[in-house]
Amino acid sequence: MAIRLMVDTCVWLDLAKDYREQPVITALEELIGSGDVELIVPQQVLDEFDRNKARIAEEARRGLQSHFRLVRLAVNRFGDNARRADLLAGLNEVDHRIGVDGDAVGESIERIDGLLRGVPALATNDGVKQRVTERALAKKAPYHRAKNSVGDAILVEIYADIVSTATADTPCAFITHNTKDFSDADGDFRQPHGDLAHLFEAPKSTYRIAMVEFLKEHSPDPLGDHDFEFNYSQEARRLSEILEAEHLLSRQVWYNRHWNLRTKIEKGEHEVVSEQDYSRNPYRADQTLDSVWELALAAAKKTEDEVGIENLGPWDDFEWGMLNGKLSALRWILGDDSDTLDA
């Protein structure tokens, strides 16, 4: 009995960015190859993966190169004089290979790309578009949050079409890591949001927030001897992951502060002035020099292109507190003062 499986883009990207997830990709490849799983790929997911895969690969390479730079500094400072040259030569070769050949992340991206392109992509038809509009007007999940949720809503409506033909003998499943938009907001985040609960009635439909959870429930054998709970879940984060997360958080915090200032300017609470009107003595907190503001706008556009506008808020008070807390903790780990949040 094949189960029809739809996977959110965020799951594919998370599988791609961490080489330790390759056993999961292998298990999924085997299930699809054996016919136990039929992959459903909306065009929306394929497009989003295409837009982000280069960024994921580059961030992984940049993180690894940053890691090796730190290792080289440590070798230079603490390494044994007799072995230092050989160690540095080896590290330089690895660093070069990362830049030229890529790494395991590139392999994961290629394998996932093969899975996504191995089946015909489902286009977003007019019926889906109409229901997305109706969902937006009714502010039903994933439109219950103050953000652009068109892409998420398209997935919901395409999955609704799949569920409409599902039975206990031909079930379907949806996997996402985006618990904020799809999960129960006030209860168990492993359960779907109340607006979506009707799409996940057992035994014909399943909602899961982790690929491993789905694999263990439906077909545990392909994971084989991979002691996932011990070797993966308990493994410390790599330095490259920490650096990547710190960079993203710093961009998010800076962008939110920039947008708050932009809002004040639009409301007339803050003024952008020319050099001749700018007050330096005394300093005025309600003024920004026009040349500085132009640089800030350019930096904001660069941040949007680098991070993706969908990853830049808006945030509620709880989410904003979590962002600052995470950034503070990571910078403490990297050696900065724990209260250093300057972007």
Score class of each variant (00 low, 15 high):
71 V>T: 09
51 R>K: 15
110 E>R: 15
64 L>A: 10
286 D>W: 02
209 I>P: 06
126 D>E: 15
27 A>I: 08
93 E>I: 08
278 Y>I: 05
59 E>M: 13
341 L>H: 05
304 E>T: 11
274 S>A: 15
292 V>G: 00
94 V>T: 11
136 A>M: 14
39 L>W: 07
94 V>W: 02
31 L>K: 07
68 F>Q: 11
77 R>W: 12
82 A>D: 04
62 R>N: 10
91 L>E: 12
30 E>Y: 06
217 E>S: 12
257 R>A: 13
311 N>R: 14
157 E>M: 06
30 E>M: 13
116 L>G: 09
20 R>Q: 12
255 Y>F: 15
296 A>E: 11
174 F>D: 06
181 D>L: 03
245 A>L: 11
76 N>I: 06
282 P>Q: 02
219 S>C: 11
122 L>I: 15
329 A>K: 08
123 A>V: 13
203 P>C: 09
101 D>A: 13
280 R>K: 09
207 Y>A: 08
133 T>I: 09
265 I>W: 04
227 D>A: 15
93 E>N: 13
163 V>G: 01
152 D>V: 03
107 E>Q: 13
127 G>T: 15
305 D>T: 03
138 A>H: 04
220 P>Q: 05
63 G>W: 00
330 L>E: 00
170 T>K: 11
98 I>H: 00
50 D>Y: 05
313 G>I: 09
287 Q>N: 03
219 S>Y: 15
44 Q>H: 06
87 L>I: 01
48 E>P: 08
88 L>W: 06
120 P>I: 13
154 I>L: 13
234 Q>T: 15
277 D>Q: 14
111 R>C: 08
223 L>H: 02
336 D>T: 05
214 F>R: 11
217 E>V: 05
143 Y>Q: 00
251 R>C: 14
191 Q>T: 14
278 Y>E: 04
295 L>K: 13
31 L>V: 08
64 L>F: 01
18 D>S: 08
